[in-house]
């Protein structure tokens, strides 16, 4: 109770710190993570492995992206906070920063715009940066394409990691594909609203807000062995391309093995 009062007092008086990206650790730990934890523990029953591969200082976590809504990113944040005691700094699409409310909440929760400058700055400060190179192509892919990695942009994330001289940690997330199985897309309406897609699932929009309840699939998150990078090759397109390919391939293998290990999505 005393703690709660002190917290409220600090919030009301503005007596807390945010970093230059707008990250508010207090708000993130006391509000966001508290809200997400039941989902992480009891709804998706997330199990993690390979935590020993998460370095103690700067590193780039490269994960697959899926699930129509980016809950996988938030679950990764809970995972790294609770199991590895690290605050991951996620890179988000510019759409997030155009939208009211989401734009400032996203910054307060430690995310920033996916651009080389921001990623570089965070990595050089020794932060753990999380990136989803598939972007909208990954998170918005139809259910029939589940667990198939999409194209990895132009590999910008690889050259950023190389320049900063930090390792790349591939991270496979299994389970997010089944939370909102996307079986269709309201393309025209999405375009009118300026959104990359507007999904149709077996429950959305038919059941209205109830359709937004994610299905309770079983999740596994696995961190793979870090891939070392050297700053000297960052400007060589061939090296960058090859390394991007290597990361993608490693992640696809990891994803297939992890999916096998999990078995059926809605078992137990």
């Amino acid at each position: 109770m005393k703690e709660l009062l002190a917290f409220v007092r600090r919030r009301v008086s503005g007596d807390y710190e945010v970093d230059e990206f707008g990250y508010d650790p207090e708000l993130t730990d006391t509000v966001l993570l508290e809200l997400l934890r039941p989902l992480y523990r009891h709804w998706f029953r997330v199990e993690t492995s390979g935590l020993e591969h998460v370095p103690a200082d700067g590193a780039l976590i490269v994960a697959n992206h899926s699930g129509t809504l980016p809950l996988d990113a938030l679950m990764l944040q809970v995972c790294l906070h609770d199991e590895a005691h690290r605050a991951v700094r996620l890179l988000a699409a510019d759409l997030v920063y155009r939208l009211p409310t989401l734009s400032h909440l996203s910054r307060k929760f430690g995310h920033t715009l996916a651009c080389p400058e921001d990623a570089d700055r965070l990595l050089r400060k020794g932060e753990l940066v999380g990136v989803f190179p598939e972007g909208f192509k990954g998170v918005g892919k139809p259910f029939t394409h589940r667990y198939r990695l999409q194209r990895f942009g132009r590999g910008g994330f690889v050259s950023t990691a190389m320049r900063a001289g930090v390792p790349i940690v591939p991270c496979a997330i299994v389970g997010a594909e089944e939370i909102y199985p996307k079986i269709g897309d309201f393309t025209l309406l999405a375009r009118m609203l300026g959104l990359p897609y507007l999904p149709m699932t077996p429950f959305f929009p038919w059941l209205g807000a109830f359709g937004l309840i994610p299905l309770p699939s079983k999740w596994l998150i696995e961190f793979g062995e870090p891939i070392k990078t050297t700053p000297s090759d960052a400007d060589d397109p061939m090296t960058v391309f090859n390394l991007t390919d290597q990361v993608r391939e490693t992640l696809q293998h990891q994803l297939d093995a992890l999916r096998e290990r999990r078995g059926p999505a809605f078992h137990r």
Partner: peptide, 12 residues
């Protein structure tokens, strides 16, 4: 703008 890096340096 929402498309800018979080922190500008002189060369941004």
């Amino acid at each position: 703008s929402p498309l800018d890096p979080a922190v500008f340096t002189e060369s941004s």
